[in-house]
Amino acid sequence: MQKLLQDMVETYGNQVYRLALRYTGNMHQAQDITQETFLRAYKHLDRFDRSKPAGPWLFKIAGNLCRNWLRDNREVPVEMADNLAQSTNPGPEEIYLEKEGEKELMQALNNMPLIYREVLLLRHVGELSYTEIGYTLSLELSQVKNRLYRGRIMLKEMLRKGE
């Protein structure tokens, strides 16, 4: 059991962490979410189909935790997000935001409706295939394709506006 968990952490730990980092924008919170993801995975290891890759299953758990975190912390209606984005001051733990363009990227993400954000993040941060994204979010393949396309357009538009 522990060997399986160790393999999962080695293979997917950083990807889950990066996903949580994109949702929360905070390294400490992202580490907590990652730890909770693997604790839950360990607890429900008997429900995991070992013939399949663990990635989508882990991202499903992590995605739920991230959504809960957003709900409890700073998920706000889209029209209010502009004001919020302006007032977001990265704390000392958000050092990675210092990378050029990172702050704009996080603001654009935070302004984006969750249904597009989660598909974009699973694709570009989680590096999942369309089918795996569909499994993770319980979506049809056509929904994955459309949301990914709309999400990508939205992100580019928001970044262009922010310039």
């Binding site: 522990q2 990066r18 990652t34 990675y96 694709r123 990508r152």
Partner: peptide, 28 residues
């Protein structure tokens, strides 16, 4: 392709701290 390239900027290099697995096992 331009859209895909822009979204690729979402990739992130951050890694978990080395003691992550040890801390996880402590809790388990």
């Amino acid at each position: 392709a331009e859209l895909v390239k822009t979204s690729d900027g979402l990739r992130i290099d951050a890694d978990l701290p080395p003691e992550f697995y040890e801390n996880l096992m402590d809790r388990i």
